[in-house]
Design a protein around this nucleic acid. Structure first.
Lengths: 143, 143
DNA sequence: TAAATATCCGACTAAATTTGTCCGATGACT
DNA sequence: AGTCATCGGACAAATTTAGTCGGATATTTA
């Protein structure tokens, strides 16, 4: 079930933007180098994040990207939602509007999907980019 | 991130086999009808489950499939692992043998993937097919 | 003003995965 | 012998993944 590179690269890129928060724009090239992501591909991913309102851009020389909101206000879940779609095991638990399974016997797997969905969202909707940054700092201190 | 039909169909099929446990083999056709799964496709999926040691088969007339072990002994995680591969957000937390991310800065997302991985496995590795069956029974009683 | 920097936009593509379908062979029961 | 049912492999359309590339646009700097 491994996530695609969209989500994996994208979260790394958002982490770099979070580190830089408050210090003006950072160009894509730097992010791509630091996180070892193909620059041209990252360009597509950051466009998605921009359209999702998580990132804003400054064009031209000395330009680059910045977080739209502060790292405390952005959760891992918001980033993954933009890039991977709903982080749910099945449509029926991803979207409250989703059509109910139309089996006469009732859906026998829905309970499982709900439990998985809740456990995932319990993590990704509470963890912010700020938390990621703090975790990183404290893990470096330990060395 | 929605799971593929492999996992979704496969778990429904295993549920049917669990219901039938102890009563001899049940043909694929019946399972496909009850759970509204294309029979020819389910044939492929059940072959995977058979090779994973979760299901055994009886050929010929009055044949069909049965669970290899009892529903108490089979977890949702085992079924999903066979059909979807590791239920982890990233390779590095799916497999302890996986090569470490080789970034000088260290992997900044690993902590997130570990938390997600743990929360998923906390659900799928403790929930058995027997649990699913019991949940289904009690939800029917409520009506 | 020209050059350099950097985003923006869309087109393109190879490869893999998904979601099946189909068919013939094999084995077992009646 | 006939029927039921699994077994195995081939085939394929559609989608997704994981990029690559080129040119247009905007901004700063020299």
């Amino acid at each position: 079930m491994i996530l695609s590179t969209k989500g994996r690269y994208g979260l790394k890129a958002m982490f770099e933007l979070g580190l830089q928060y408050g210090n003006g724009p950072i160009p894509l090239k730097i992010i791509a180098e630091r996180q070892n992501i193909p620059e041209n591909y990252l360009e597509q991913l950051i466009a998605i994040l921009r359209k999702a309102g998580l990132v804003k851009s400054v064009r031209g020389a000395q330009g680059g990207y910045l977080m739209q909101r502060s790292p405390e206000e952005v959760t891992v879940g918001q980033v993954l939602l933009a890039l991977e779609g709903p982080m749910a095991p099945a449509e029926c638990v991803a979207d409250p509007e989703a059509p109910k399974c139309k089996l006469a016997s009732g859906c026998v797997t829905r309970g499982v999907w709900e439990k998985i969905n809740n456990s995932i969202h319990n993590v990704i909707d509470t963890m912010t980019l700020q938390n990621m940054i703090e975790d990183q700092v404290s893990s470096i201190e330990k060395e």
